[in-house]
Amino acid sequence: MDLTRIDKRIIYLLLLLAVAIPLLTKLELPVNVGPQTEKVFEAIEEIPAGSHIIVSFDIEASSLPEVQPVAEAMIRHTFGRDLRIVGLALFSEGTAIGYNMLSSIAQEFGKEYGEHYIYLGFRPQYVSAILGMGEDINSVFPLDYMNDDWTEYPAFAKVRNYSDISLVLSIADGSLPTYWVEYAGSRYHQKIVTGLTAVMATSYYPYTESGQLVGMVGGLKGAAEYEKLLGYVGGGQRGMLAQSSGHLLIILVVCIANIAAWRKRR
């Protein structure tokens, strides 16, 4: 049997089994918390209760399975710390996703719309939107997602620009955190953290090392770490065994294919 030419459908099937079987078991792997996740956790812990933070849903539906556990853990933390959330979306697909996620977690924590959180919806041209919010958030988002005047909510009436925002949390699956760093961070000295897909993580390490990003929570592993810090088991920790067995299978397939290719050449 030529192992360098395995039918890829066999590999797909093996991968399906490697991921599905651990999901059927209730085993959990121990999780070690990394420094990046810890930095994000600490940054949120340091914010006094009642402060306002921006949660920007810069995501598309296709990355939701990976980003959702990250976003949920971070939003749970902010609601748990009694911070007030200004939600918005800079990708159109993130609009409804963000609203649903915020309102369902708010309900879980007994938080009220207008008192503990608001949702401003989507604005195109993210560079203009990020820059505009540095001057006046109301001019960029005059009405909220429900087309109501959000400045009429007393808890948010005094929020004018980044000087009233303690932290920006960009939930992202692309390059949006870079724009937050470039325009809100560099120009307005806004503190920024990000929760993003693992595939984007390597691109953002330079920004965390330089201090332009306070920290980041990357992928399902990051979500599992954050859940551990918060002390609950969510999508991140539940998926860790499946993630690890999937990785093991891929390492195995790569090794077998390389050894087979090497033997074939000889």
Binding site: L23, P65, T202, G239, Q243
Partner: peptide, 26 residues
Amino acid sequence: VFFGATFGYTVMSRISLLIGRLEFVL
């Protein structure tokens, strides 16, 4: 080294998506 790390993260990302979908199905 950078490409290797990026590929590793990409694999992790794609498996996470599969986990999410399988969790939905199951």
